[in-house]
Structures are given as structure tokens and as C-alpha cells.
Simulated scan of single mutants.
Amino acid sequence: MSMKTATHKIPVQHCRDFTQEELLADMRAFRDEVAQSPEKARAFLKSIGVMRDNGEIRHLIHD
């Protein structure tokens, strides 16, 4: 699954046009969609750069 196919009801550029409740509902719906399967969760983590293609978790905060 590509995160490009994930459904967001509210485009990022239009976030200011919606209420806080509407934005939270959209975020919750996206979270529920991503959490439906391990494959979807991995695809999301890879799309935001937290997981490498080989499944290794990247350490984004360095000491």
C-alpha cells in the first residue's frame, strides 16, 4: 500500500478552513485506516522516514 492511496478527507492546504473537531475526526479516521494491518502501518512509517525499506527503524533523535 502506498500512503499516496490513503484517504484524507481534508487536504493539508485547506486545514484552516475546518474546525478543530473536523480536523481531529480526519486524523482519527486516517489513524484507523493506517492501523488496519501491519502492512499499512509499515507503509506509513516508511512514508514519513521512520522505517527503512529493510524494516529497520531509524533513530531520528541523536544524543
Rank of each mutant, 00 (worst) to 15 (best):
I61D: 06
R42H: 01
D32G: 10
A6I: 07
R42Q: 08
D32F: 14
V50P: 01
V34E: 08
T5I: 03
L60Q: 09
S37I: 07
P38D: 10
G55D: 04
T7I: 14
I57E: 11
L23Y: 10
E21A: 13
R16Q: 11
G55A: 02
I48V: 14
E39P: 00
A41R: 08
L45A: 07
E22Q: 12
R16P: 00
F30A: 11
A35V: 07
E39F: 00
I57F: 12
D53L: 11
C15G: 10
L45W: 01
R16N: 13
E33P: 02
R28D: 04
L23H: 08
S37C: 09
A41L: 08
D17T: 12
I61F: 13
A35L: 10
R16C: 07
V12M: 05
H14V: 04
D17F: 05
I10G: 03
D63F: 14
H62N: 15
R52V: 00
T19D: 08
Q36F: 02
L23G: 06
K40N: 14
H8V: 12
D63L: 12
I10R: 09
F44N: 09
M51W: 10
E56G: 05
E56H: 04
I57Y: 09
Q20R: 11
M27Q: 13
D53C: 05
L24Q: 12
E22V: 01
H59S: 15
K9L: 14
M51K: 11
M27Y: 15
M1P: 04
K4T: 06
N54C: 02
P11W: 02
M3F: 12
S37T: 14
I48F: 01
T7N: 13
M27P: 02
S47Q: 06
A29K: 06
S47M: 03
H59T: 15
